[in-house]
Design a protein around this nucleic acid. Structure first.
Lengths: 133, 133
DNA sequence: ACGAGTTAATTGTACCAGCAACTACCAGCC
DNA sequence: GGCTGGTAGTTGCTGGTACAATTAACTCGT
């Protein structure tokens, strides 16, 4: 718990310093950047992030006001929507990426050996998957 | 990030269900339980927990109102104080401990093999120490 | 084709956390 | 001894998050 908070807080500071975005919101952009260009459903985005659905709604509100993402209608489900990066959002993400990876290194990866990283990656994926179930 | 949030949220739910205390507050009791009976300085307690100094002040307020801990004057520093468990706090902690360990197993340890646990314990300790520096 | 039950997303509310500013106290130096 | 710089803990304030209840739309059985 202490370690995870230390990493999260350090990353959050760096993220804010780099592009003014809290870590959670930067992470949303990153997830969107890896997804299809058509966008991602809010529920899926919440599951891939650290937010609940309600938290996601507010975060999307903020990012939309900032012009970094947009809500599109979902063609296959009238209730739903698709969240997608705008051109500006894509640009912000690309610009911030190098510093973001450096921050990961500084706060986390640099403390680990190569085999430790492999072990931990597997463990974290298993736990995240279990949390989703 | 996703994995750590999953574990933390799961543990928090279980902690609240078990003794009505949020995970962060239960954790404070646990840290106090492992420390000397004379108590721990707030600054040290904050460093050993997931809270900042200001967050710790409020958490201590709540736990003190609940009668689980008490603030004592610090003999060696007139500004400072010593936070210590009350008898009631010790009792609550002892009663909740078994379920707390089961929760750790359920949400975290059961997903890992024995060597993975050893690796991760070392890594987390290193990172927590780096965060303290 | 219609209704019951389910799921997607939002909103009202309450709470918790952090930052920055503040007060009180300590320590070291002249 | 008194002054200067630093440390311990608290408080005003703001913002973010979750929970629970709500609205709208989908799905399946008949």
């Amino acid at each position: 718990m202490v370690a995870s908070v230390a990493v999260t807080r350090g990353m959050d500071r760096d993220s804010q310093a780099a592009n003014g975005l809290p870590l959670a919101e930067h992470h949303l952009l990153a997830v969107l950047g890896e997804g299809p260009d058509t966008g991602i459903r809010p529920t899926d985005l919440a599951a891939a992030s650290t937010l609940t659905k309600s938290g996601l709604t507010r975060a999307v509100d903020r990012l939309e006001s900032a012009g970094l993402i947009e809500r599109r209608e979902c063609p296959s489900d009238g209730r739903g929507q698709l969240i997608a990066l705008t051109a500006k959002g894509r640009q912000v993400l690309r610009r911030a990426a190098p510093e973001f990876f450096r921050a990961i290194a500084r706060h986390f990866a640099d403390h680990l050996t190569e085999p430790e990283i492999e072990t931990i990656t597997g463990v974290f994926e298993r736990i995240a998957a279990a949390g989703r179930a």
